[in-house]
Computed example of a mutant assay.
Amino acid sequence: MNRPLVFQTDFGRNDGAVSAMYGVALSVNPALHIYDLTHDIPQFSIWDASYRLYQTIRYWPEETIFVSVVDPGVGTDRKSIVIKTNLNHLVITPDNGTITHILNEIGIKKAWIIDEEKNRLPHSGVSYTFHGRDIFAYTGARIAAGIIKPEDVGVEIQIDQLVQLSIPEVLQVNGSIIGNIDILDIRFGNLWTNIDYQLLKGLNVEFGDPFEVTIENDAQKVYKSKMNFVRTFAETRLGDPLLFVNSLDKIGVAINQGSFANTYGIKSGAKWKICLQLLKYDS
């Protein structure tokens, strides 16, 4: 039985790269069901690729195969890998940190190094610049079609030997919660942090409570203001800033019907810090 095959890249849709990956997969088996996670990862952003996999993967059926190609090291000695998550999904990707958020938030059972000579698209020439087509799409399609198993691609690698990006920890300091801005909700300009709602809940924070929110980029203050923690955007006036719980049960920052990211020039990543200070008013 064929398994779903999901592609993610930073290729965009303006040329034939994604189409070539589709073509390779369907040449392996025309009955494969292929889907797109996104092809709009910012160029070379391994961090964004890692987060988008984590954001999406748990909502797909077990045994779904994800092919993620954000590969600034293509053609070098970086490894190509297949990993199996604790939720029984497979990810095929360069070993460059793309599995970081999955490893930290979901867990990985096993990993294998792809033998790129044995698992390369036949008659693909000598180019080392399009492993998305020649290695990853081809290998993913063969696994999805049941032609090979994950363990057939090459030798197993220990989980602690996989390349990981550095993920800042959430800290509690003098009554404040300090985290980082993991990713942007691109279309609406909301900020998604790594601060879990359960942390606020454990501090007896309630919807409606006021916070002072400070955002810094590499220790340079970018934003500081007060806003309320709300259940829905409709509880605030148009244009007001707010804190909310996003679809991953993490704390988000937004402007009601506006783009917080664009308004204040805020981006995401390990250098973007956010501090939440609960304000207590005397009755």
Rank of each mutant, 00 (worst) to 15 (best):
G269F: 03
K118F: 00
S124P: 06
D182I: 14
I251R: 06
T98C: 08
R58G: 07
N86G: 12
R231Q: 09
N217I: 08
L243Q: 08
F7W: 04
V70F: 06
N246Y: 00
G154D: 02
I167T: 13
Q43V: 12
H89R: 15
T9H: 11
K273M: 09
L162N: 03
L203F: 14
W272E: 02
N29T: 03
T214A: 11
N256D: 05
R120T: 04
V24W: 01
A137I: 10
D10R: 13
D71S: 07
Y197P: 02
D134V: 08
S124Y: 00
Y223D: 01
Q8K: 01
S166A: 05
G154S: 09
P72S: 13
R78I: 14
S259P: 07
M21E: 02
T263I: 10
T56Y: 09
P72C: 14
S68L: 02
H123W: 07
R52H: 08
Y197R: 08
S19E: 08
H101V: 00
K271L: 11
L184D: 05
L243Y: 10
A17N: 11
H39M: 05
T76S: 15
F11N: 09
K271P: 10
T100Q: 09
S50D: 03
L248C: 01
L248S: 03
Q198I: 09
A20I: 05
Y138H: 01
F260C: 06
I181W: 01
S166D: 14
L276I: 03
Y197W: 12
V153H: 10
D48V: 04
K273R: 14
T76F: 04
V213Q: 02
E235C: 01
T232W: 03
H131C: 01
E216V: 02
I186A: 13
M227L: 14
T100Y: 07
K250Q: 09
I266Y: 00
V230A: 03
D209R: 13
R3A: 02
F244W: 13
K110I: 02
F211E: 08
N204Q: 15
I157M: 07
N104Q: 12
F229E: 03
D48R: 12
I178M: 04
F66M: 05
I147F: 08
D160L: 13
C275Q: 12
N256W: 10
L184T: 11
P61C: 06
S45A: 08
L162R: 02
L87I: 15
I65S: 02
K226R: 15
K149N: 05
G252S: 02
Q43F: 09
V70C: 09
R187F: 04
S259Q: 07
G97F: 00
W112A: 04
F211G: 05
D185N: 14
Q172C: 05
L53V: 15
I108V: 15
G252H: 00
L248Q: 09
L184C: 06
V126S: 13
I177F: 04
E212F: 09
A254W: 00
Y264G: 10
I215H: 01
A111S: 15
N246H: 01
N256H: 14
K224Q: 15
V230I: 14
C275V: 06
D95L: 13
N246S: 10
S50R: 11
W60P: 03
R142H: 06
L32Y: 11
E117F: 11
W47D: 07
V69H: 10
R133F: 07
